[in-house]
């Protein structure tokens, strides 16, 4: 055991641990190198995220190209006002994250904590609204008008409508001839739209959860005074991740909610 300690300390002595903060890992030479590695690593990871969502967007493009009318009909049953509100929420959270990185860079701990806190609240708000939208769809499947009505056994939905893909899927036939030919079956491309909607927004929501976890950890670390004006890389690359989630939503919003 004694030898271990000796060797290790000798090694550390060799590349001068005294000259820099404790956050520099042993295999890096300078803090700048470590920071560049972290940033580049995050960007390479974001490339994988973009390609991951790219697959879904490609499927979307293929089917929208094939069924433009179905897309227009189906999209009208999404809650565009709530989608718009959520877009605003996410854009504001992006601003707070950008400002948080700035605050960390200038060593303003209180402001950093405030901004990260606001981001957390906004992220949770986004997921709350999203959950409400989902539950609205499920409530319709159960035959109730709103999720609250569903929970309390309140007002029933007049017409049959179920936009959750699956056996029970039933797209309301109100648009005349186009849907009449499918009247006997629920196997219509409308399901494709809603399937893509649930998968894309669901995967986005999963990323939001991961993002919220990251921001919570950052908040905790900031509260513990972990970040200094010379070392705030986690805030920066955590911010990059958060912005990417925002970018994905920037495309999801017009592609699902704003279709004619």
């Amino acid at each position: 055991m004694a030898t271990t300690t000796q060797t290790t300390s000798a090694h550390h002595g060799d590349h001068g641990h005294a000259a820099h903060g404790p956050e520099l890992q042993h295999h890096f030479e300078t803090p700048a190198q470590q920071k560049e590695a972290a940033t580049l690593g995050m960007w390479a990871f974001l490339v994988t995220e973009v390609m991951l969502f790219g697959g879904i967007f490609l499927a979307y493009a293929v089917y929208r190209w094939a069924f433009p009318d179905v897309w227009a009909e189906a999209a009208h049953h999404l809650n565009t006002p709530l989608g718009t509100v959520n877009t605003v929420v996410l854009l504001v959270s992006s601003l707070t994250v950008a400002l948080a990185v700035n605050a960390a860079e200038h060593g303003r701990r209180t402001r950093l904590l405030q901004l990260l806190g606001v981001t957390l609240v906004l992220g949770v708000a986004f997921l709350g609204i999203k959950a409400f939208e989902y539950s609205e769809k499920f409530a319709h499947c159960a035959g109730y008008k709103t999720p609250i009505a569903w929970a309390t056994g309140g007002e029933l939905l007049g017409e049959q409508e179920c936009l959750v893909p699956g056996r029970a899927f039933a797209f309301p036939a109100e648009h005349g001839a186009a849907t009449e030919e499918h009247a006997s079956t629920n196997k219509t491309p409308h399901q494709l739209f809603y399937l893509l909607y649930f998968i894309a927004t669901g995967l986005h929501a999963v990323h939001m959860l991961i993002g919220l976890t990251i921001v919570s950890i950052l908040t905790f670390l900031a509260w513990r005074g972990f970040f200094t004006p010379t070392y705030f890389t986690p805030v920066e690359i955590g911010g990059l991740y958060w912005h990417l989630i925002d970018v994905v939503w920037v495309f999801l919003f017009p592609l699902f909610y704003l279709v004619h």
Partner: peptide, 19 residues
Amino acid sequence: LLAIERLWGVGIFDPALGG
């Protein structure tokens, strides 16, 4: 997407839906 198709019973590669 394939796993979802198997689990959920409907999927985006399903020709019956137009996939």
